[in-house]
Design a binder for these strands. Structure first.
Lengths: 349, 349
DNA sequence: CGCCTGTATGTGAACGCTAACAATCGAGTG
DNA sequence: CACTCGATTGTTAGCGTTCACATACAGGCG
């Protein structure tokens, strides 16, 4: 007994629609794909049949013959952090409006093996491109080696020599923050850096160094954390013993929050005794005690821009000349310094 | 000129593997699907050919014939918040170990239309089940109406009457927090609730009411926010004018953070003058000024549990008897009260 | 030695769609 | 009025798997 296509609960196929509309399945296909040369009356009849049967095209069949999955993959290392989560959101939005589905894969560890697993996983799903939210230098390098199999972009940080991507100008943002602190009268600025192997962390540290160097200021040893409040707190415990530290630039807001905590514990006031500046502008930044001066980056925008880049690469016919397509290798978004109450003149000035 | 299958860059198909191994395509299929009745030597030859050609099965073709996509969908409303992001992560992990891919769709607005769009989008992708991270009552209701088309679960909050799901026991968690504050000697406890149409918000508010009622305490008007620090701050502005408010239970940590800010601004000390308790235990909670007493929920675990539930529903053969399968309708995880420095005895005791 | 059984392998036909080509129809043209 | 042309529709052949069935091959038995 053959299944009754039109019965409730059983998915109708194109032939059913064709039969109901009194046309061939090919005409149905034409209507569904907006092909020309279909008489309006016919089109209308087909569409009516589609509605009547609640017909939905079979994705697998279409994919098999067109060889396109209309799916993009996203690989992220720690998608629970604020930045990555926000970027993922931006990516999903942009993918939807570009007509793509989004499939995710997370990186278990930040090693080459995990990278390979994640990429293979997405390839098994026939994704047409991959966006990477994980900018450890190592990871990016690993991804770069898998290139050629499928287009890739990085989101959140860029390493244009290896992969195209979208990111804020971390160097410029860090420089602006440090310059601002120096302008307030601080002798120098201390730095709590991110993990040494992250591109963002490196760029922000470089910006900090640059800004100090440009004014021939002493460059204190930089401490480094893992982006977490805890690591910021631990850095703060050391910084609060150093009386020369009157201004601290942290590589992200969460660490800045930990630093604030460390100073608060022993009654050192911010900004009267010490100034603290963060990076990211998380939504909480304005409501900390005190509200945090920070460098804002628009994560959602980064996600969207990165995805646009990816779509461009996916849809551009000739992938041979990788590296030569200037103008589509990087989207750099400008960061913005947001002044709040955690920064001020150094004590005694 | 036919494409050279074995050339680099062109995907080999099963027939190529078969030819190279000197067997039929069917034998290759058997090896790849771990079917019995293949001689070890043959199997070995096939696997060697697979490696040699870097063969990967065509997902579309397999999907077409097996009618299984091995893909699950996740719909979330605001995946940039800490909780949802974390749950998504847990879901992805669990899906991977259960052998499923994960495809995401975000809800543009929290209305029925958006819900329908998101569900249709995932259905077009032929997902076998959907996990929903968005527990506005309205949304859940909308989802429930689409049931029957594809199995669904909610993650983060549960409304077992409508859909199966995994969540913490918000009621119990809230009760514990309030009881703890009363035990410290506070006359009553004020509440900053979440948005009125969220299941979590309702449950936590109910728990707060219960705990006060059980000891016959006055139930102050509750304020409500939108989960954000800003809304917590605004609630704090009002609460700080009310001298009877010596203890405040907030429906999440972000709002608690805003409340702390509001009191801090006018020099009201926490916990000496007022106690504040949150919900969630975000990673920053321990590093606020003061460290926040809160109710911890393990979001990652919720994601995993929710996904297990979904997989069960997907793989259980008979979906007819919905509602009758007791024991697989809800996974309730116990929350944990975490004591930190933001709570203490009321002033004068 | 013929027959039966089980293991190992091959063959053909779906799955539901799109691409390429064929067929049909009406109107305009010399 | 036969002839061409473009618009419209239909027919056929895959896409790369898995499923159902057919076949071949060995060993055990009477």
């Amino acid at each position: 007994m053959p299944a009754d296509r039109t019965a409730h609960g059983v998915q109708a196929v194109m032939a059913d629609v064709a039969a109901l509309a009194g046309v061939s399945h090919q005409t149905v296909s034409r209507v569904l794909n907006d092909r020309p040369n279909v008489r309006p009356a016919t089109r209308e009849r087909v569409l009516a049949a589609v509605r009547e049967l609640d017909y939905r095209p079979n994705a697998a069949a279409r994919m098999l013959v067109t060889r396109r999955s209309r799916t993009l993959g996203v690989i992220s290392f720690d998608s629970a952090l604020y930045g990555p989560a926000q970027m993922l959101h931006g990516i999903e939005q942009a993918a939807r409006s570009a007509g793509y589905f989004v499939s995710i894969a997370s990186l278990r560890y930040q090693d080459v093996r995990s990278v390979r697993e994640a990429v293979d996983r997405l390839r098994d799903q026939a994704v047409e491109g991959i966006a990477v939210i994980a900018s450890q230098a190592l990871t990016v390098a690993a991804f770069a080696q898998r290139i050629g199999t499928v287009p890739m972009v990085t989101v959140g940080a860029i390493d244009p020599a290896r992969l195209p991507g979208a990111g804020v100008d971390n160097l410029v943002g860090a420089e602006a923050a440090v310059r601002y602190l120096l302008d307030l009268g601080h002798e120098t600025v201390h730095h709590v850096a991110g993990p040494a192997d992250w591109l963002e962390a490196n760029a922000r540290e470089a910006g900090w160094r640059n800004a100090l160097g440009a004014r021939s200021r002493r460059v204190p040893d930089s401490l480094s954390g893992d982006w977490s409040s805890r690591s910021g707190y631990e850095a703060g415990l050391r910084l609060r013993r150093d009386s020369s530290a009157t201004a601290i630039f942290c590589a992200n807001d969460h660490m800045a929050l930990g630093v604030l905590r460390a100073f608060h514990e022993i009654g050192r006031r911010v900004p009267e005794d010490v100034s603290v500046v963060g990076f990211d502008d998380i939504p909480e930044a304005a409501f900390l005690a005190p509200p945090l001066t920070t460098v804002r980056q628009d994560f959602g925008e980064l996600g969207r821009r990165g995805l646009e880049l990816l779509v461009h690469h996916v849809e551009t016919p000739d992938p041979r000349k990788k590296g030569t397509t200037v103008g589509h290798q990087a989207a750099i978004v400008a960061p913005e310094l947001v002044l709040r109450a955690s920064s001020g003149r150094p004590p005694g000035r």
